[in-house]
Every structure is written in structure tokens, then in C-alpha cells.
Amino acid sequence: MYRILIVEDDQRIAELLSSHLDKYGYEPIVTHQFDAIDQAFEQIMPHLVLLDVNLPKFDGYYWCKQIRKISSCPIIFISARTGELDQVMAMEYGGDDFVTKPFYYDVIVAKVKSQIRRSYGELSIAATDTEREVHFYGMTFFPERPELHYGQQRISLMKKEGDLLDLLINKYPRTVKREKIFEQMWDEKEFINENTLNVNVARLRKKFTELGIENAIETVKGLGYRLNVSWNEVDKE
């Protein structure tokens, strides 16, 4: 049974979320430790977090960042904020999805199911005997961690960043259409804001920059994205 940590200061919403998830076979756990969400997380070790943005003392963005220091488990933001900037911030701080209030509880369940399947289902590392390594022009990419090694450097990726890089490598040197990326990375694409993909592309570009690599991902206007091998593999080996 998958444990779902619910971080929501509106008691009525928290109870309704808990009841709905319980009905679908999940193990929902509501926390009221709003001044120590990271400690609650470590005590519970959930498979997924439903995280409100507006919380006492520190907001959900802050707590998402703290959780990301210890876990890559899926985090779905739930918020009354509807602006694009809020959704961008959610992705920047490590969130995997963003749902605005008021919402249909069946939508929440669908998103939870999608994230659980991608993180712990048949394609996850737990379901395989051997960890997959992808060697690409002097780099080694470990999709299940997800982690990218380049020379003596290594950098951890968020799950969606890893999914995107895996797809771009598999299709190289071809361009991957935006529609294809939505299809591969999100099951419920009708609920995904277009800006969510833009944020994930920007985050992956930033990770390449941290490795000293510029222009690693090209935007093909009107189509989508493709990898650009702009680094020198010889110098890093």
C-alpha cells in the first residue's frame, strides 16, 4: 500500500483528500507538523506528497526544497494560487505537478496514480534486476537514480528532468515534438499546463550549465526540442 503524505492546513480539505485516497486503496497520512514538515516526512517516508503552497510559517515551496534534499519522491502541489508564476516556482523548487483549487478529487487521484506508476511501477528500478546505464558522447546517464556523470563531475536530476533527458537521448539526433514529450512524460496530459514543459526544459538546461555545458538543448521552433552535443568528450575523459 502506497503512503501519501497530505500537507494541508485546511482541515476539511485534508480530511476529504484522506477519505478519497483511502477509498482507492492508498494509505493517506495527514500531518499537522507545519513547522517541521521535513521531520514528518522522515518519520513517515511516504511514496508521494500532496503539498499545499499556503502554509503557516514557511510556504510549500520552502518545504519542497527541504524534502528534495533527502528524497526524489513525487510531490504534487495543491494551491488556490492560479498564476503561471506560482506553477513555475513549484517546478523550480522540485515539484512534479501542480493542481489549483477548487479541484475534483478524482483529478487528484488520477495524478497520484500516474506519479506512483511512473515512480514505482513496472518501469522503475525496483522492478528490474539491473540498473540501466546510458553512455552518450562521454557522459554516463543513470535514468533510474536519476544522475548524470561527466568526467569527474556528477549531478543529480529531478525525476522529470531525468525522464526528459532519457527521451532526448533515445531520439538523438532527431527532434522530439512537444506532443510526444507530453505523451511520454505525463499520462493525464489534458491536466498539464503548457508552461510545465517549458519549466522542465529550463531546469534541465540549468543542470547542463552546472556541468559547464552551454546550449545542450536546442529549441526547434514549431516542433519541439533536441540535444545538441556542444561539449568536448575528449577533454573530459
Rank of each mutant, 00 (worst) to 15 (best):
N215W: 01
D129W: 08
N170W: 10
I213E: 00
G94W: 05
Y150W: 13
K159W: 01
L123R: 12
L164S: 07
K171D: 05
R117V: 10
H47C: 03
R132E: 15
V109R: 10
A126V: 15
S119N: 14
D9E: 06
L148Y: 10
E179C: 09
C64Y: 10
N54G: 00
G121A: 09
S18Q: 07
W231C: 05
V234R: 15
E214N: 04
I213C: 00
I116K: 09
I78Q: 01
G60L: 09
E15Y: 07
E218L: 10
P74L: 05
V220Q: 05
P74T: 03
T175W: 02
F41C: 08
W63N: 05
A36M: 04
A126K: 13
Y225P: 09
I181M: 13
E42N: 14
N198M: 03
A126I: 14
K180G: 13
Y225E: 08
L85V: 13
I67V: 13
F77C: 01
N215V: 04
F182V: 10
Y61M: 08
I4T: 02
A14P: 07
F208P: 00
Y137S: 15
F77Y: 12
F141L: 08
S156P: 01
F191L: 15
K171A: 14
I155C: 01
T130S: 14
I29E: 03
G94E: 02
D163R: 03
T100R: 09
R118S: 14
L157H: 01
E183L: 09
E84P: 08
E218R: 04
Y26M: 11
M91V: 04
I125W: 02
W231S: 09
I125R: 12
E190W: 12
A202E: 06
A110M: 15
I108A: 07
I70G: 03
G224W: 05
A80D: 09
D163V: 05
R203D: 02
D52T: 05
M158E: 06
F98L: 06
V99F: 13
P173T: 10
G151F: 07
A216V: 08
D10R: 04
I4M: 11
Q43G: 02
S124C: 12
L164H: 03
I192M: 14
L123C: 03
L17T: 02
Y61K: 03
K206N: 02
D35N: 13
E84D: 13
W63V: 10
S230C: 15
G60A: 12
K180H: 05
K160R: 12
V7P: 02
T128W: 03
W63K: 06
E92V: 13
S79V: 02
E42A: 05
M139I: 11
E147F: 02
I213F: 00
F191A: 08
L148M: 05
Q153K: 09
I192L: 12
R203S: 10
L16V: 15
V30D: 03
P146W: 11
D97E: 07
E8H: 11
A80T: 13
P102K: 13
L197A: 04
D235C: 08
E233F: 09
R12L: 14
D10L: 07
D86W: 07
F58P: 01
K177W: 04
L227F: 01
K207E: 00
I13K: 02
C73Y: 00
L17D: 07
F98Q: 00
K177Y: 08
L123G: 03
